[in-house]
Simulated scan of single mutants.
Amino acid sequence: MMIEQAACRPYWSVIRDVILTPGRMSHTQLTQPAHDDPRIATRYALDGQSFPPDHPSGAGGLYTTAGDLVSFAHALMRHRLLDAAHTAQVTTGKVPTGFGDRYAYGCSDLTVAGHRIIWHNGGAPGASAWLQIYPDDGYTLAALSNVANAGPGGGGVQPIAQKVQQLITGRQESRW
């Protein structure tokens, strides 16, 4: 509602024009997909319970692809979304989380064995997502799963994120 009032136009048009188009995210949508859309995976809990697509919202309502998440990361880090000063402001941690990283504006900022990681995760019942940007190393991880995160060694994308971090930094943080 705040975005719509500040921009004097619908939320979706702001997201499309300010993020999706310059971010080259052509496979991301905010509209609720049809239940029979073959591009949308059925979401599952670890016990096998399935979940239908949710009605979209600003928090967790985007339907996207791993490729579009990588496109977003590249657009952010290559200053197609914000200039260099604002990109640094948005991605630089400000508030300690108590787990070794610092929360920035919508992402966490972590350094492991000298490797900076800008990251964010998310999920919904039966779904999980993880985005890690290693700006100094030139790596980006975008992982999506139709299984909820269940902690280390469980379902979802968390074990993938942990393994990638270990491969890049040589260390495994217990944080995740």
Rank of each mutant, 00 (worst) to 15 (best):
T91D: 12
K94G: 10
H79D: 15
D109W: 05
A88S: 14
A88T: 15
L141G: 08
L110T: 00
A84H: 09
S145N: 10
R116V: 09
V95D: 04
L144C: 06
Y134W: 12
A148M: 07
G114N: 12
V147N: 08
H120L: 04
V112N: 12
G138P: 03
R116M: 10
A142E: 04
I133Y: 01
N146W: 07
H86K: 13
Q132F: 07
S128Y: 03
W119N: 12
L144W: 04
N121H: 09
I118D: 03
Y134V: 02
A142F: 06
A104Q: 06
D136S: 09
A113Q: 08
N121K: 03
F99C: 07
G122L: 14
D137M: 00
G138Y: 02
D101S: 14
I118M: 03
C107G: 00
P125R: 10
Y103E: 13
L131P: 02
L131I: 11
A85I: 01
R102E: 08
A148C: 02
W130G: 00
I117Y: 00
Q89M: 12
A143Q: 04
V147E: 13
T140A: 06
T91K: 12
G106E: 10
A88Y: 07
H115T: 11
Y105W: 11
V90F: 05
I133M: 11
G126V: 08
T92G: 09
L131Y: 02
T91C: 15
A143L: 06
T97A: 05
D83M: 04
T111H: 13
A127R: 14
V112K: 12
I117S: 04
F99N: 13
A84Q: 12
T97N: 14
L131H: 05
G126A: 06
L82I: 03
H120T: 10
H115E: 00
A127S: 15
D137P: 00
G114I: 11
A129N: 09
G100H: 12
I133L: 07
H115S: 03
A85M: 02
L144A: 05
Q89L: 15
G123H: 09
A129V: 10
S108I: 01
A85E: 14
G126D: 06
L82V: 02
L82N: 03
L141K: 08
